[in-house]
Simulated scan of single mutants.
Amino acid sequence: MSVTIKDIAKEANVSYSTVSKALNSSPLVKEVTKQKILRVAKEMGYEPNLAAKQLVRKKTEVVGLIWPTIERIVLATLVTNISKAFASTRYSMILSVDSTETAMESFKKFQVDGMIVFAESENMVPEENIPLVAYGVSGKSEVTYPIIDANHEQAMDTAVQYLYDLGHRNIAYVGLMNTDDALQNEKVEGYQKVIQKMGLTELNIATNGLDWFDGYLAVDDVLHLDKRPTAIIGSSYDISSGILRALQEKGFGVPDDISLISYDNIPQMETTEIPMTCIGVPVDELAEEIVQTIIERIESEEKNVIKKLNPSLTERESAGPVPEEDVTSS
């Protein structure tokens, strides 16, 4: 038989209302009394009736997250960090790998207080009476909910400038192009702008997707460019990991022969065969911002706010000065 608040009140020799206040951390209960009640509740194996609590408060304190894919390591890492960020709040997170439409219907049934979506295209998700926050590109669409948007253009500017300062003039970009994924398009446009600004030649290699194997296969095209790059910018961790492996298999030293910088900023980049220099918003910072924003959206009903986060460059071992023979030939 389950333990009730009345059972705790009897055991602790206090009133029912005092127990209720103590379990809800009310400042109206003295600290010594609250600690006594909490100790008695724990000893008796009390489990709060969450359904009843939610009914009274008209909130579930649950946020639903719609995960677009289980295949990309970066998104998996971000979701893990979002879950960790929720651990320090009173909210819990539930996850759906279904389509956006199916997931939203499921979350409505669970009566979640809010939802997080990964909006990777410019066709933004419609908000339907549930507070919503999107991680993606702000784009041109009119939306009524906050968007967390990393500054991809600035990231590419920083990456190219870093390589330029190391002496590189033939800098290739490898990634998904001409896609409905606005996030990827913004990276490409950022690369093109800074290359044109510096008077360099664009060396674009389009991949078929965003996975490890896409980066691996792209290296053949990179090496057959009229100007062989001395540096490569990979558009994601997965793609850059594939590039790194292919270069090593073909006998190219990284960074002795070809430097490599990857977009994304996750801890796994430190443990690749050659620790990767990377550019992007650190994943823990990104997760904290997403969680803070959805809670603000739930509790204050903050409307259309675009938060553009600034990337940071983490220097490791995959990028170095341009090889001497390339300096003399450039």
Rank of each mutant, 00 (worst) to 15 (best):
S2K: 14
V3I: 05
T4R: 06
K10Y: 07
K10S: 08
E11A: 15
S17Y: 07
S20W: 05
A22Q: 06
A22W: 04
A22E: 11
S25F: 15
P27T: 06
K30V: 03
V32S: 14
T33N: 08
V40L: 07
A41V: 05
G45P: 00
Y46K: 05
P48T: 10
Q54R: 10
T60V: 08
V63C: 08
W67A: 14
W67P: 13
T77L: 00
V79E: 00
A85W: 01
Y91I: 04
F107V: 05
I116L: 12
V117N: 01
A119V: 08
E120G: 13
E120A: 09
E120V: 12
V125R: 07
P131L: 09
L132G: 05
G136E: 07
G139Q: 11
E142A: 15
I148Y: 06
H152R: 11
V160S: 02
L163T: 01
D165Q: 08
H168L: 02
M177G: 06
L183N: 08
Q184G: 14
I195Q: 00
G199W: 02
G199A: 00
W212C: 14
D214I: 08
D214W: 12
V222I: 14
V222R: 10
H224T: 14
L225E: 11
I243T: 04
K250F: 09
G253W: 05
D257V: 15
I258V: 04
I261Q: 03
N265E: 03
T272L: 10
T272G: 10
T272E: 10
D284Y: 14
A287E: 01
E289T: 15
I294W: 08
I295G: 03
I295Y: 01
R297M: 07
R297K: 09
E299H: 05
S300F: 11
K307D: 02
S312N: 07
L313I: 02
R316I: 08
S318P: 05
S318W: 03
G320N: 03
